[in-house]
């Protein structure tokens, strides 16, 4: 790049960007407009700058719109909840009736494995994110969301990376973690098992541990035990002893 002759001078770039970002005083703005009107070379340089500037802005806007859209969906969900409240009421009434009819213990004795899951499950804390480590900007942006507990955002961003062909253990591991944290143990299991299918996979102890937990959440004790036994983590060894069929 350095050997290439620069197309714009630093001053030109500074001038163009100040114009495009509306940072010029009215007098300066008029002056600039008349100089591009009378200087075709400068005008061509400006138009090229503007086209690229707009592309950068458009990319930023498209990214932001994905966020806006999530807001719309959240609100849609709230509305649907209101709409379904009558249905929920009916279900609640049915449950009350069932309980009165003697099924009370069923609702009050939570499943033992579910309780174990709750006691042992803490989402993986995630990787440190350092602004400036921009090689993997999208990945780390999603990591920031994951650490804040915004699992749907993290999942969407990481799945996008995966659909672009990224398939390393780290991505799979955190996709699995995010799905599990987002109450989707089946999806989590898919990714965790995906890691184990690789040659020399990374994070195996953690993967086995979380796989065990995911099956525990699904109340599949046998599978849970099988995976927990493979993990060398101390907590996995303790947990496996406590699982009831």
């Amino acid at each position: 790049m350095d050997r290439e002759e620069a197309y714009w001078t630093k001053e030109e770039q500074g001038l163009f960007e100040r114009y495009l970002m509306e940072q010029m005083e009215p007098g300066e703005k008029t002056g600039f407009e008349s100089s591009i009107a009378s200087d075709p070379t400068l005008n061509a340089k400006f138009l090229e700058f503007k086209a690229l500037f707009r592309a950068i802005e458009e990319a930023g806007l498209r990214h932001a719109m994905e966020e806006f859209h999530k807001g719309v969906q959240e609100k849609g969900k709230e509305r649907r909840l209101v709409n379904t409240s009558r249905a929920v009421f009916r279900i609640a009434a049915t449950i009350a009736l069932l309980m009165a009819l003697g099924g009370v213990w069923y609702f009050y004795a939570p499943n033992a494995n579910e309780r174990l899951f709750e006691a042992y499950y803490v989402p993986d804390p995630g990787l440190p994110t350092v602004m400036g480590n921009s090689d993997n900007y999208d990945f780390y942006r999603a990591m920031v969301a994951y650490k804040k507990g915004d699992y749907p955002f993290a999942i969407e961003a990481w799945e996008k990376l995966r659909s672009k062909g990224v398939a390393n253990d780290t991505l799979y591991y955190f996709l699995g973690s995010a799905h599990l944290a987002n109450d989707q143990p089946d999806k989590g299991i898919e990714y965790f098992e995906g890691i184990l299918e690789k040659e020399n996979p990374a994070f195996t102890d953690e993967t086995f541990f979380y796989l065990g937990l995911a099956y525990l959440k699904k109340d599949e004790a046998q599978q849970a035990r099988k995976y927990l036994k493979e993990s060398d983590l101390e907590k996995a060894k303790v947990l496996v002893e406590k699982i009831k069929d």
């Binding site: 960007e17 690229l52 592309a55 950068i56 802005e57 990319a59 921009s134 090689d135 993997n136 900007y137």
Partner: peptide
């Protein structure tokens, strides 16, 4: 033309994309 500009941006390194996005967008 717009598509070409966006494609060029996509080919630019992540560090540059991030820096330009922070500054211009």
């Amino acid at each position: 033309k717009r598509q070409t500009m966006l494609r060029a941006l996509n080919q630019l390194g992540d560090a540059c994309q991030q820096l330009l996005g922070l500054f211009y967008y």
